[in-house]
Structures are given as structure tokens and as C-alpha cells.
């Protein structure tokens, strides 16, 4: 066990944590809107809901790595992207990673929210109707808040899965925690020490996310 390496690699890996967190926040931020949008499309049974289903099926059925590679390497072939302002975003691995992560987590989020919408007790909606609240208001002020409350535990898991997913950004040259860890491992050939440090940083982040979600669940539960 090389204690010196553990001590010297810690600040380096912590520098990568900043990129990991940036990727995580950006993709969760965009992902929640994408997820909400597609979950709303899924409520009614029409052509649009089929498209939303196909979107979530495709993104949940393929590995995140394929999605990143298609967006980063593949999309550069398309003239529409290469020759317009879109190229500004698609030439940067950072934005490609965020686009891929956001679309991926959006698919899972839409699935989580959809099942939350489906399990809302009909009584809440009827109560709203009998109080003469408009349909729009019922949707925005009753259905959406309840759905968000109900999906908190599953969404917490999704955040943790996405935190782990951001490690794939290292495959498109970004130096996040995993990218730096791989660099240190391949120069020192001491994988165990680096794994301990990098793993601890990830575990610490998981721990924080887990507890924040637990706190929110308690705060927003109906029982208090």
C-alpha cells in the first residue's frame, strides 16, 4: 500500500470532482424538464404518447456509452449539425456528454413520473373538480406536486445512477474523477490506491445525495 500516492492523488481527484458535479447538475437540470415533458405526453393514449414511449424504450434499452458515442462521434457526420450553429455545442465533448446524459436521465425520469401520475389517488383530482378548480390548475397545482412527492425515492436512485453515469464522460476525453483516476493508474500502475481514493469521493457524494433525498422525503411526506 502506497500511502504517499493516496495523499498526493487526493487533491488531483478532487479537482475532477468539480467536473463530475458540473456534469451531474447540468444533466439533471435538463433531464428533469425532458422527463416531465415526456411523462405528460404519456398520460393520454395517442400518437404522441407512442413517440414518448419509443423515446424512453430506446434510451433505457441501450447502454449510455453507445448514446455518448453516437452524439460525440456520430453526429459530427451530419451536415445539418456540422454546418450550423449546432456545431458550437456538438464539437465540445463537454456539451455532448451533457446532451447524452440529459437525454438518458430524461428517459428514466419520464418513466418515474409517469408511474407517479398513474398512482395518484383519483380522490385528489375529484376533490379538486368538486371544488370547481379548473383542469389546468388541478394539473399544475395538484397532480404535478403529488407526482413529484411520490417519485422522490425513485428519483434519488436515479440521481445516484446518473452520478455513476457521469464517469463515462472520461471516454470522450473529459477529465472527471474517473478520467483522472485512469490517468494516474496508467502512469503509476497502482490501481488499488487510486481506486480507494476515487471510490471514496464517489461514495461520499452518493452518501450526501442519499441523505438529502431522505430529508426531502421526510419534509414533504403527508404524515407530519
Amino acid at each position: 500500500m502506497d500511502i504517499d500516492l493516496i495523499i498526493t492523488s487526493f487533491p488531483k481527484l478532487l479537482g475532477g470532482a468539480l467536473i463530475t458535479l458540473k456534469l451531474l447538475f447540468a444533466s439533471m437540470f435538463f433531464g428533469i424538464f425532458i422527463g416531465l415533458f415526456f411523462a405528460i405526453l404519456r398520460i393520454r393514449n395517442n400518437f404522441l404518447s407512442k413517440i414518448a414511449y419509443a423515446y424512453s424504450y430506446i434510451f433505457r434499452g441501450t447502454p449510455l456509452l453507445v448514446q455518448i458515442f453516437i452524439i460525440y462521434y456520430g453526429f459530427a457526420e451530419i451536415d445539418l449539425i456540422r454546418k450550423t450553429f449546432l456545431w458550437e455545442a456538438f464539437k465540445e465533448p463537454y456539451w455532448c456528454a451533457i446532451i447524452a446524459f440529459a437525454l438518458n436521465t430524461g428517459a428514466y425520469t419520464s418513466e418515474i413520473l409517469r408511474s407517479a401520475f398513474e398512482t395518484i389517488k383519483i380522490g385528489y383530482i375529484e376533490a379538486g373538480k368538486s371544488l370547481g378548480i379548473s383542469k389546468k390548475l388541478i394539473f399544475y397545482k395538484i397532480q404535478i406536486p403529488i407526482a413529484i412527492k411520490q417519485s422522490l425515492p425513485a428519483y434519488g436512485n436515479e440521481i445516484i445512477l446518473m452520478l455513476k453515469g457521469t464517469s463515462l464522460a472520461s471516454t470522450v476525453t473529459l477529465m472527471d474523477i474517473t478520467g483522472i483516476a485512469k490517468y494516474i493508474i496508467s502512469t503509476t500502475f497502482k490501481p488499488i490506491e487510486v481506486f480507494i481514493v476515487a471510490g471514496s469521493i464517489y461514495l461520499f457524494m452518493t452518501f450526501i445525495i442519499h441523505n438529502v433525498i431522505k430529508f426531502l422525503e421526510k419534509k414533504y411526506s403527508f404524515n407530519n
Partner: peptide
């Protein structure tokens, strides 16, 4: 279960890839 489920899969693979034969 906590460590494996809290650490990215890619990191575990690197651990085995670089550390396995060692």
C-alpha cells in the same frame, strides 16, 4: 453492496483491468 453500487462501473473495471494480473 454499498461500495459496488455507489462507485461507477467504469472505475471497478479499471481496477480489475490494471490490478487483476498484479
Amino acid at each position: 453492496t454499498t461500495v459496488i453500487r455507489g462507485v461507477p462501473e467504469l472505475l471497478v473495471i479499471y481496477l480489475f483491468f490494471f490490478g487483476g494480473s498484479g
